[in-house]
């Protein structure tokens, strides 16, 4: 897949949640290597859209294509989330506090039964990539907010996804940390070439991250 090809396509998505219509025949295409920023008022469905792409939810109607492959059709999940070559950084980071930093990052590789040496190598490399060398054995609770954010990013990147979904990942950080991390995310995205879909409310993040902006409006 070369840069500019359509990597994600949502076709005529409709979804109703708790009597509220979130999407009505909504369509969107995302090109490979793009940094798409999703904005919109609270409750408009930004996080839901990420979950639909990830396969953590299904729409009432509509089709979702990833890399040209139909992955969701109406309420049927045709391709499971972990087979979509994507990963996600959650708003609350969703780090497993009972596992060390290395174990958090290695989880997906262990599930996929990678050889031990390969897991160690990849974890080490990914930690270096996010600036956390030597943090392998640290407990999650002992890390600062910024460090936890980097672990979440490392966990999402270790399986080398083609698409990275980020749901307000920096909302709990202060201004200076946020600034630095935005820069690092952009550099990583350019180096690794993944497609980024980024949800935020922050005007500064929008300006820095977006190569394209999509505003969701309430129906």
């Amino acid at each position: 897949m070369s840069e500019g090809d359509v990597v994600i396509e949502l076709k005529s998505i409709s979804l109703k949640r708790l009597e509220k219509r979130l999407f009505d025949r909504f369509s969107l295409t995302v090109a490979s290597g793009e940094r798409l920023v999703l904005v919109g008022a609270s409750g408009v469905g930004k996080s839901t859209l990420l979950r639909l792409i990830a396969g953590l939810m299904v729409p009432d109607r509509g089709e979702i294509y990833i890399d040209g492959v139909l992955v969701t059709k109406d309420q049927e999940l045709l391709i499971e989330p972990h087979k979509r070559m994507l990963n996600m950084v959650f708003q609350d980071l969703a780090l497993w506090s009972h596992l060390s930093v290395a174990k958090n990052i290695a989880f997906a590789l262990e599930i996929a039964k990678y050889p031990k040496e390969e897991i160690l190598r990849r974890v080490k490399n990914t930690l270096a990539m996010v600036g956390l060398e030597g943090y392998e054995d640290r407990a999650i609770d002992t890390l600062s907010g910024g460090e936890q954010q980097r672990v979440a990013l490392a966990r999402a990147l270790v399986s080398e996804p083609k698409i990275l979904l980020m749901d307000e990942p920096l909302s709990h950080l202060d201004r200076s940390h946020r600034e630095r991390l935005i820069q690092e995310i952009i550099i990583l995205q350019e180096q690794l070439g993944f497609t980024l879909i980024y949800v935020t409310h922050d005007a500064h993040e929008i300006e820095k991250v977006a190569t394209r902006l999509v505003t969701l409006s309430p129906i």
Binding site: A54, L56, H82, N87, M88, F107, A108, I111
Partner: peptide
């Protein structure tokens, strides 16, 4: 939070 589980699902668990 459900995201703890969702993160595991995305990892293929």
């Amino acid at each position: 939070p459900s995201s703890l589980e969702e993160a595991a699902i995305l990892s293929g668990a």
